[in-house]
Write a protein that binds this DNA or RNA. Structure first.
Lengths: 337, 337
DNA sequence: TTGAAAGCGGTACCAA
DNA sequence: TTGGTACCGCTTTCAA
């Protein structure tokens, strides 16, 4: 194991100079720095993590708590975990996993033992137990998602309400007087917060713009293709030609299938917008207008905020809502004048 | 932040006694131990992670490398990650995530900086780049899965070949002279190792027992329901009434659907065995005989071995194959005498 | 621009 | 059964 002493000896300097040269926290003459870097390079020097934590009061580790519920959509969840890990590494941080039963105890433990510099919270529930813990620990905690009670919390999330507004606006602009929302699973409307927020946004704007709105959740816990089909067909039977889909890929597939069966051309006879989908919508049978939920965006922002909490002192708690973006693909009728 | 000194003061003992009392590495009189534990409890003492690493030469962290490929089956993958995390925590270890691009660099980094006590390797490829790194680092590394070249490696995995043997044996015992294997995705036969191993086991034993074997992969990258249906129907048309399924849940569903359509009763007219499925087969439409792949089993064993490598010196590398178990559910014709 | 040295908060050896 | 203390390897202040 190469230590800083060996690097110092090899470069003919003191260990403090090595430390400063490598961290850049103190100016070091160009040529000694080069000598030190060369020595570190050839010796394969990597500072000891424990020593660095102890002396530097920085662990360079973030905890990521992810309580895996039975109804968790695995691909979406993985996308968020991955995006967080990538964003963290880019800033020089590793991710320590805190799973299920460990959530509360785990958060307290890693905070009390100074194992991590910050905690990132995934899969946030409306009445999340981690909210209280976040308030009680000194470790900066960033929620990726919004709990109901956001007092004193730092959160990052897509602005789902604005996404709902945006979707309805586009459909109304296209002249639709009625729209149907194919929503998330029933259980998610109770266990999560974002489906309700999108729904609220859609409802609000539909009321504002005199769009008659109907909606259905897509199955009890798992998505139910038959149910999706039935509700899509019922909407079509009612003369509705505008759809907002806030659901996983399968649901999109079913809707497109039904439209196809009825000979309704996307962007001509019928309009479809995929709202807050976190998967790659290009895998669908047809191009669809989307208001995507980009895990990389949320997670990167969360990591940035975490880092800021460490670098600056007294960063006030804040709710960061990410503005939705509309990506047109021709699945919505052109606006009529 | 509570330190060991405060606990010692509160209990009226020296810090070394506190350390020993809490670690149990030296006998401490019953009543002083109680006093110390009380003090630690009320003060909410949690040893500083960095200090513990530095002084104890043990980080109590395992790295988990998981290179997420595009064809990774998210639910299965999550099951393994979760099982690993749970098993590790039970032994007092946390899991540090090493994702994708970071795999090689990441392993070297965490090993060189003594950030982790051991490395667990998930999603092992036949020609995995992590094999060489495992050989070069001092950090004990356990593969959950088998690469082609296993020299000097410690690996844990289900004995897929034995699972293949077992499946064919049961079908042959039931009097089937022909069987069809519905396999994994095509890409997995190239990118992974276990599909081939199961296939080999099935082929070997089929040859031994004079069972005519046919098989198909289920789709190019993603599972293709239509393809599954076609190959199941073709097999039935050929008079085959015995199936081994080594695939995700959807494939099982399609097969059961086809059998149902043809009025073939499971366990009477036709036999089906699900081999090495890592999902809960009780969600299927009908009960099916299984030879399950239990993530908890593999991951717990891997963690146990990692711990053993830390507690004992000079544990030799070894391949640990987990014997498959047969769980009957009546989906295979009773053996004929 | 560089070096010496005082910690950081534990662990574990050596004494008592 | 307990206490004193020398590290563990690095960061950072204080001096030069």
């Amino acid at each position: 194991m190469t230590t800083i002493h060996e690097v110092a000896a090899a470069a003919g300097v003191s260990i403090s100079t090595v430390s400063y040269a490598l961290s850049g926290k103190r100016p070091v003459s160009e040529k000694t720095r080069r000598r030190i870097e060369d020595a570190a390079q050839t010796l394969g020097y990597q500072p000891d993590a424990g020593a660095r934590m102890l002396a530097g009061r920085r662990t360079h580790i973030f905890a990521l708590t992810e309580p895996l519920r039975a109804d968790t959509h695995a691909p979406t969840h993985m996308a968020f975990v991955l995006a967080t890990a990538v964003a963290a590494r880019r800033r020089g941080y590793d991710i320590l996993l805190l799973t299920d039963e460990q959530t509360s105890d785990g958060m307290n433990r890693v905070a009390a033992s100074n194992l991590v510099d910050a905690i990132l919270v995934l899969d946030v529930a409306p009445d999340d137990e981690r909210v209280d813990i976040a308030r009680s620990v000194r470790t900066p905690t960033i929620f990726i998602g919004l709990p109901d009670d956001q007092r004193d919390l730092t959160c990052v999330d897509l602005d789902f309400e604005a996404a709902g507004h945006l979707a309805i606006d586009r459909l109304a602009d296209a002249g639709h007087a009625a729209a149907h929302l194919l929503g998330q699973t029933e259980v998610s409307y109770r266990k999560s917060n974002f489906p309700r927020r999108l729904l609220r946004g859609v409802e609000e704007r539909a009321a504002d713009r005199d769009v008659v709105l109907t909606w259905t959740a897509t199955g009890a816990a798992a998505t139910d293709p038959a149910l999706v089909r039935r509700s899509a067909e019922a909407a079509l039977d009612d003369g509705i030609r505008a759809f907002v889909v806030h659901a996983v890929d399968d649901v999109h597939d079913v809707l497109l299938e039904v439209l196809d069966e009825r000979g309704l051309a996307l962007g001509v006879d019928a309009s479809v917008i995929s709202a807050a989908a976190s998967f790659d919508t290009s895998v669908l049978a047809a191009p669809i207008d989307t208001i995507p939920l980009v895990p990389q965006q949320s997670c990167e922002l969360a990591v940035d905020i975490a880092v800021r909490h460490l670098d600056e002192t007294n960063v006030p708690p804040e709710i960061h809502l990410i503005a939705p973006e509309y990506h047109g693909a021709g699945s919505v009728r052109p606006p009529r004048d």
